[in-house]
Simulated assay, not measured.
Amino acid sequence: MTDSGAAVRELRKQSGVTLRGLAAGIGVSVGTMSAIENGKVGLTVDRLRDIARCLDVPVSRLLEPRPEAPPPKDPEPTDWREFPPLTLDPVLQSAIEVFEELGYHGATMRLIAAGADISVAGIYHHYPSKQHLLVALVNLAHSDLVGRLDAAAAGAEPVTAFANMVEALTLFHVERRPLALVLATELRRLEEPNRSLLKASMAQIEQRLLDTARKAAEQGAFRDGDLSTATRAIVTMCLAVPTWLDDVDRAEGRRLAREYAGLALDMVGAAAQR
Protein backbone atom coordinates (compact mmCIF):
# COMPACT_ATOMS: atom_id res chain seq x y z
CA MET A 1 0.00 0.00 0.00
CA THR A 2 1.24 3.48 -0.69
CA ASP A 3 2.50 5.78 2.07
CA SER A 4 -0.73 7.76 1.83
CA GLY A 5 -0.61 8.84 5.47
CA ALA A 6 2.56 10.86 4.90
CA ALA A 7 1.03 12.37 1.76
CA VAL A 8 -2.10 13.36 3.72
CA ARG A 9 0.02 15.07 6.39
CA GLU A 10 2.14 16.95 3.84
CA LEU A 11 -0.82 18.10 1.74
CA ARG A 12 -2.79 19.09 4.85
CA LYS A 13 0.06 21.33 5.95
CA GLN A 14 0.39 22.81 2.46
CA SER A 15 -3.34 23.57 2.49
CA GLY A 16 -3.16 25.28 5.89
CA VAL A 17 -5.66 22.84 7.44
CA THR A 18 -5.18 21.78 11.04
CA LEU A 19 -5.24 18.15 12.15
CA ARG A 20 -8.40 18.86 14.10
CA GLY A 21 -10.00 20.60 11.14
CA LEU A 22 -9.34 17.70 8.77
CA ALA A 23 -10.57 15.21 11.37
CA ALA A 24 -13.81 17.14 11.71
CA GLY A 25 -14.12 17.43 7.95
CA ILE A 26 -14.09 13.67 7.38
CA GLY A 27 -15.96 12.78 10.59
CA VAL A 28 -13.26 11.05 12.65
CA SER A 29 -11.54 11.77 15.96
CA VAL A 30 -8.27 13.69 16.17
CA GLY A 31 -6.61 10.49 17.42
CA THR A 32 -7.80 8.54 14.39
CA MET A 33 -6.66 11.31 12.07
CA SER A 34 -3.23 11.30 13.68
CA ALA A 35 -3.03 7.50 13.33
CA ILE A 36 -3.93 7.82 9.63
CA GLU A 37 -1.15 10.33 9.04
CA ASN A 38 1.35 8.12 10.86
CA GLY A 39 0.43 5.04 8.85
CA LYS A 40 -1.13 3.19 11.79
CA VAL A 41 -4.65 3.14 10.34
CA GLY A 42 -5.37 2.04 6.80
CA LEU A 43 -7.24 4.21 4.32
CA THR A 44 -10.34 3.05 2.48
CA VAL A 45 -11.25 4.35 -0.95
CA ASP A 46 -14.16 6.36 0.50
CA ARG A 47 -11.98 7.92 3.19
CA LEU A 48 -9.32 8.87 0.66
CA ARG A 49 -11.98 10.60 -1.40
CA ASP A 50 -13.27 12.44 1.69
CA ILE A 51 -9.77 13.64 2.57
CA ALA A 52 -9.09 14.74 -1.00
CA ARG A 53 -12.38 16.67 -1.01
CA CYS A 54 -11.55 18.42 2.27
CA LEU A 55 -8.07 19.35 1.06
CA ASP A 56 -9.35 20.27 -2.41
CA VAL A 57 -6.80 18.08 -4.21
CA PRO A 58 -7.13 15.16 -6.65
CA VAL A 59 -7.16 11.73 -5.02
CA SER A 60 -4.05 10.85 -7.06
CA ARG A 61 -2.04 13.38 -5.01
CA LEU A 62 -2.57 11.15 -1.98
CA LEU A 63 -1.21 8.10 -3.80
CA GLU A 64 2.17 9.45 -4.90
CA PRO A 65 5.14 7.35 -3.76
CA ARG A 66 6.58 10.13 -1.57
CA PRO A 67 5.87 13.86 -1.31
CA GLU A 68 9.55 14.56 -1.95
CA ALA A 69 9.69 12.31 -5.02
CA PRO A 70 6.37 12.37 -6.90
CA PRO A 71 5.95 10.34 -10.08
CA PRO A 72 7.27 12.16 -13.15
CA LYS A 73 4.69 14.09 -15.08
CA ASP A 74 5.02 14.81 -18.76
CA PRO A 75 3.10 17.63 -20.44
CA GLU A 76 -0.19 16.63 -22.01
CA PRO A 77 0.31 15.73 -25.65
CA THR A 78 -0.43 18.48 -28.14
CA ASP A 79 -0.68 15.90 -30.92
CA TRP A 80 -2.18 12.67 -29.67
CA ARG A 81 -0.61 10.71 -32.53
CA GLU A 82 2.91 11.72 -31.51
CA PHE A 83 4.77 9.76 -28.84
CA PRO A 84 7.99 11.45 -27.73
CA PRO A 85 9.98 9.55 -25.08
CA LEU A 86 8.62 9.87 -21.57
CA THR A 87 10.74 11.60 -18.98
CA LEU A 88 11.47 8.77 -16.56
CA ASP A 89 13.95 8.61 -13.74
CA PRO A 90 16.40 5.68 -14.02
CA VAL A 91 14.59 3.70 -11.32
CA LEU A 92 11.22 3.78 -13.08
CA GLN A 93 12.83 3.00 -16.44
CA SER A 94 14.54 -0.01 -14.91
CA ALA A 95 11.32 -1.07 -13.17
CA ILE A 96 9.45 -1.11 -16.50
CA GLU A 97 12.11 -3.34 -18.04
CA VAL A 98 12.27 -5.74 -15.09
CA PHE A 99 8.49 -5.94 -14.70
CA GLU A 100 8.10 -6.58 -18.43
CA GLU A 101 10.68 -9.37 -18.41
CA LEU A 102 10.01 -11.07 -15.06
CA GLY A 103 6.58 -9.87 -14.00
CA TYR A 104 5.81 -8.12 -10.73
CA HIS A 105 6.41 -11.15 -8.50
CA GLY A 106 9.62 -12.10 -10.26
CA ALA A 107 11.08 -8.60 -9.96
CA THR A 108 13.27 -7.65 -7.02
CA MET A 109 14.42 -4.28 -5.81
CA ARG A 110 18.02 -5.49 -6.21
CA LEU A 111 17.48 -6.22 -9.92
CA ILE A 112 15.77 -2.87 -10.43
CA ALA A 113 18.60 -1.10 -8.60
CA ALA A 114 21.17 -2.83 -10.80
CA GLY A 115 19.33 -1.76 -13.95
CA ALA A 116 19.19 1.83 -12.70
CA ASP A 117 22.86 1.79 -11.64
CA ILE A 118 21.87 2.87 -8.15
CA SER A 119 22.21 1.30 -4.72
CA VAL A 120 19.27 -0.57 -3.21
CA ALA A 121 19.30 1.95 -0.37
CA GLY A 122 19.01 4.72 -2.95
CA ILE A 123 15.83 3.20 -4.36
CA TYR A 124 14.26 2.78 -0.93
CA HIS A 125 14.77 6.47 -0.21
CA HIS A 126 12.20 7.39 -2.86
CA TYR A 127 10.31 4.13 -3.48
CA PRO A 128 9.96 2.14 -0.24
CA SER A 129 8.67 -0.99 -2.01
CA LYS A 130 7.86 -2.61 -5.35
CA GLN A 131 4.26 -1.58 -4.73
CA HIS A 132 5.27 2.08 -4.74
CA LEU A 133 7.06 1.58 -8.05
CA LEU A 134 4.05 -0.18 -9.58
CA VAL A 135 1.69 2.59 -8.44
CA ALA A 136 3.99 5.25 -9.92
CA LEU A 137 4.12 3.44 -13.28
CA VAL A 138 0.38 2.80 -13.39
CA ASN A 139 -0.39 6.43 -12.57
CA LEU A 140 2.04 7.59 -15.24
CA ALA A 141 0.51 5.30 -17.88
CA HIS A 142 -3.03 6.27 -17.02
CA SER A 143 -2.25 10.00 -17.05
CA ASP A 144 -0.62 9.77 -20.48
CA LEU A 145 -3.50 7.70 -21.87
CA VAL A 146 -6.27 9.98 -20.57
CA GLY A 147 -4.52 13.07 -21.92
CA ARG A 148 -4.37 11.51 -25.37
CA LEU A 149 -8.03 10.50 -25.32
CA ASP A 150 -9.00 14.05 -24.35
CA ALA A 151 -6.94 15.47 -27.22
CA ALA A 152 -8.29 12.90 -29.70
CA ALA A 153 -11.92 13.76 -28.97
CA ALA A 154 -11.56 17.52 -28.56
CA GLY A 155 -13.71 19.52 -30.96
CA ALA A 156 -14.74 16.56 -33.10
CA GLU A 157 -18.27 15.47 -33.95
CA PRO A 158 -19.33 12.17 -32.29
CA VAL A 159 -18.41 9.71 -35.07
CA THR A 160 -14.96 11.21 -35.60
CA ALA A 161 -14.41 11.57 -31.85
CA PHE A 162 -15.31 7.90 -31.34
CA ALA A 163 -12.94 6.72 -34.08
CA ASN A 164 -10.16 9.02 -32.87
CA MET A 165 -10.47 7.76 -29.30
CA VAL A 166 -10.23 4.14 -30.42
CA GLU A 167 -7.22 4.99 -32.57
CA ALA A 168 -5.59 6.83 -29.64
CA LEU A 169 -6.29 3.94 -27.28
CA THR A 170 -4.70 1.50 -29.72
CA LEU A 171 -1.75 3.75 -30.52
CA PHE A 172 -0.97 4.12 -26.84
CA HIS A 173 -0.79 0.35 -26.41
CA VAL A 174 1.47 0.04 -29.46
CA GLU A 175 3.79 3.02 -28.93
CA ARG A 176 4.01 2.71 -25.15
CA ARG A 177 4.00 -1.09 -25.24
CA PRO A 178 6.35 -1.82 -22.27
CA LEU A 179 4.48 0.60 -20.01
CA ALA A 180 1.07 -0.52 -21.33
CA LEU A 181 2.03 -4.14 -20.77
CA VAL A 182 2.68 -3.41 -17.10
CA LEU A 183 -0.73 -1.71 -16.92
CA ALA A 184 -2.45 -4.63 -18.67
CA THR A 185 -0.85 -7.52 -16.80
CA GLU A 186 -0.08 -6.23 -13.32
CA LEU A 187 -3.34 -4.51 -12.39
CA ARG A 188 -4.20 -7.45 -10.14
CA ARG A 189 -1.00 -6.83 -8.17
CA LEU A 190 -2.12 -3.39 -7.04
CA GLU A 191 -3.13 -3.27 -3.40
CA GLU A 192 -6.18 -1.41 -2.17
CA PRO A 193 -7.21 1.34 -2.46
CA ASN A 194 -5.10 1.76 -5.61
CA ARG A 195 -6.67 -1.20 -7.39
CA SER A 196 -10.23 0.07 -6.93
CA LEU A 197 -9.28 3.60 -7.91
CA LEU A 198 -7.60 2.46 -11.12
CA LYS A 199 -10.51 0.17 -12.00
CA ALA A 200 -12.87 3.11 -11.54
CA SER A 201 -10.67 5.28 -13.77
CA MET A 202 -10.56 2.62 -16.49
CA ALA A 203 -14.34 2.27 -16.27
CA GLN A 204 -14.60 6.01 -16.90
CA ILE A 205 -12.64 5.57 -20.15
CA GLU A 206 -15.10 2.92 -21.29
CA GLN A 207 -18.00 5.15 -20.25
CA ARG A 208 -16.65 8.05 -22.30
CA LEU A 209 -16.53 5.87 -25.38
CA LEU A 210 -20.06 4.66 -24.68
CA ASP A 211 -21.37 8.19 -24.19
CA THR A 212 -19.77 9.27 -27.48
CA ALA A 213 -21.27 6.24 -29.26
CA ARG A 214 -24.71 7.08 -27.88
CA LYS A 215 -24.43 10.65 -29.15
CA ALA A 216 -23.59 9.31 -32.60
CA ALA A 217 -26.56 6.93 -32.41
CA GLU A 218 -28.86 9.82 -31.50
CA GLN A 219 -27.70 11.52 -34.69
CA GLY A 220 -28.47 8.38 -36.69
CA ALA A 221 -24.81 7.65 -37.41
CA PHE A 222 -24.60 4.47 -35.30
CA ARG A 223 -27.14 1.70 -34.93
CA ASP A 224 -29.96 1.99 -32.42
CA GLY A 225 -30.06 -0.12 -29.30
CA ASP A 226 -27.70 -0.97 -26.46
CA LEU A 227 -24.09 -0.15 -27.43
CA SER A 228 -22.52 -1.07 -24.07
CA THR A 229 -21.46 -4.59 -25.07
CA ALA A 230 -19.84 -3.38 -28.28
CA THR A 231 -18.04 -0.58 -26.43
CA ARG A 232 -16.75 -2.98 -23.78
CA ALA A 233 -15.51 -5.36 -26.47
CA ILE A 234 -13.73 -2.52 -28.27
CA VAL A 235 -11.92 -1.38 -25.13
CA THR A 236 -10.94 -4.97 -24.30
CA MET A 237 -9.65 -5.42 -27.85
CA CYS A 238 -7.43 -2.34 -27.54
CA LEU A 239 -6.14 -3.17 -24.05
CA ALA A 240 -5.04 -6.63 -25.19
CA VAL A 241 -2.73 -5.33 -27.94
CA PRO A 242 0.52 -5.29 -25.90
CA THR A 243 -0.07 -8.87 -24.69
CA TRP A 244 0.13 -10.35 -28.20
CA LEU A 245 1.91 -7.77 -30.34
CA ASP A 246 5.69 -7.56 -30.26
CA ASP A 247 7.44 -4.27 -30.95
CA VAL A 248 6.48 -3.00 -34.40
CA ASP A 249 7.78 -0.17 -36.52
CA ARG A 250 6.05 3.20 -36.44
CA ALA A 251 4.23 2.82 -39.77
CA GLU A 252 2.88 -0.63 -38.85
CA GLY A 253 1.67 0.62 -35.47
CA ARG A 254 -0.22 3.50 -37.05
CA ARG A 255 -1.75 1.14 -39.62
CA LEU A 256 -2.95 -1.18 -36.86
CA ALA A 257 -4.47 1.72 -34.92
CA ARG A 258 -6.41 2.91 -37.98
CA GLU A 259 -7.56 -0.65 -38.64
CA TYR A 260 -8.82 -0.99 -35.07
CA ALA A 261 -10.70 2.30 -35.42
CA GLY A 262 -12.36 0.90 -38.55
CA LEU A 263 -13.24 -2.35 -36.80
CA ALA A 264 -14.73 -0.36 -33.92
CA LEU A 265 -16.94 1.61 -36.31
CA ASP A 266 -18.13 -1.66 -37.85
CA MET A 267 -18.99 -3.00 -34.39
CA VAL A 268 -21.28 -0.08 -33.65
CA GLY A 269 -22.98 -0.26 -37.04
CA ALA A 270 -21.29 2.71 -38.65
CA ALA A 271 -19.91 0.93 -41.73
CA ALA A 272 -22.32 2.78 -44.01
CA GLN A 273 -21.10 6.09 -42.64
CA ARG A 274 -17.47 5.61 -43.80
Rank of each mutant, 00 (worst) to 15 (best):
S34H: 14
G27I: 14
V91A: 06
L111F: 09
P128Q: 04
E68I: 15
P128E: 00
I51E: 07
P85S: 11
A141V: 03
Q14I: 09
I112D: 08
G31A: 14
V28M: 01
P65A: 01
P71D: 08
Y127H: 07
E100G: 04
S29N: 07
A114N: 11
D89M: 05
R81Y: 14
L133I: 10
K73A: 15
V59K: 03
W80M: 05
P85I: 01
G31V: 05
T87Q: 12
K73H: 15
E37D: 03
G5L: 00
R47Y: 09
P84I: 10
A6F: 06
A121Y: 13
L48A: 03
G25K: 05
L63I: 12
K73S: 15
L43I: 13
L134Y: 05
E101A: 15
L55M: 02
T32L: 11
R49K: 15
A6P: 05
L11N: 00
L88K: 08
N38W: 11
L137W: 02
L133C: 09
S29G: 08
S129C: 12
P77V: 01
N139K: 11
D46C: 02
D74C: 10
A52Q: 00
A52E: 06
G25V: 00
R53N: 15
Y124R: 07
D79L: 06
I96T: 06
V98W: 04
D56I: 09
T87Y: 07
E64S: 14
Y104I: 01
H105D: 15
S94F: 01
A136P: 07
R49M: 12
L111Q: 14
D79P: 04
R110K: 13
S34M: 02
L92P: 05
G16Q: 12
A107M: 12
R49C: 01
V41P: 04
P84V: 12
S34E: 00
L88M: 15
P65V: 06
P128H: 00
A24T: 08
S4P: 04
V45C: 10
P75N: 14
V8W: 00
V30L: 13
L111T: 08
R61L: 15
V59P: 06
F83H: 02
L102A: 15
A116K: 10
P85R: 12
T44F: 08
L86D: 03
V91N: 03
F83E: 10
L102I: 04
G16T: 07
V120H: 11
S129H: 03
I51N: 07
A107F: 00
V41S: 11
G5Y: 00
A113C: 05
G103V: 05
R61C: 01
A35G: 07
D79Y: 13
T78E: 09
M109K: 09
A69E: 00
A52M: 06
Q93I: 03
V17N: 08
R49Q: 13
A95Y: 04
F99V: 11
C54D: 10
P77T: 05
S60A: 04
E64V: 12
G31H: 12
L140W: 02
V120S: 15
L11M: 12
G122D: 03
V30Q: 15
A121Q: 07
G5P: 04
K130M: 07
R61M: 11
D56W: 08
I26H: 06
Q93W: 06
A7E: 10
D3F: 03
E76A: 14
L88E: 06
V135G: 02
G31R: 13
A121M: 15
H142K: 05
E82M: 14
E64Q: 13
D117P: 04
